[in-house]
């Protein structure tokens, strides 16, 4: 198995290549230790912070921006957004309030990323 990716650790943006031959993983193209760690993390367990919105009733605006309090597995980002489309909350909300606990069993919580006053 082989894979290529662009490193995002610094503006150099090295093109890193990863070759997997059985147990052995060979990483080339990086220029520093950080790049190697980034590549390993990206092939073993790539994770992202999720940000989206959920509908809010009785708020100043109709949507509340939310985010995951930790990174979630990259392949669950879309599924989490779909899960969150089923949720709605009520104003008032404070920045940091819990919106969805342990989303899709990831042990990551979804929290509000701003205050929302009542209409």
């Amino acid at each position: 198995m082989s894979e290529s990716m662009t490193c995002i650790c610094c503006p150099l943006g090295c093109r890193i290549h990863i070759e997997k031959k059985g147990e052995k993983t060979q990483i080339t193209g990086h220029r520093c230790k950080k790049g190697e760690e980034y590549a390993l993390q990206e092939i073993r367990d790539p994770r992202r912070i999720l940000t989206t919105t959920v509908p809010i009733d009785n708020g100043m605006l109709c949507l509340l921006p939310v985010k995951s309090n930790k990174e979630i597995p990259k392949n669950l980002v879309k599924a989490c957004v779909i899960e969150l489309s089923k949720i709605s909350v009520n104003a008032p909300i404070k920045c940091g309030d819990l919106v969805c606990k342990n989303i899709l069993g990831t042990e990551v919580d979804i929290i509000a990323s701003r205050d929302m006053e009542e209409r």
Binding site: T51, K67, C95, R114
Partner: peptide
């Protein structure tokens, strides 16, 4: 720390 836009302005 990394914040979202709404958090930064909040």
């Amino acid at each position: 720390k990394m914040l979202t836009g709404p958090e930064f302005s909040q």
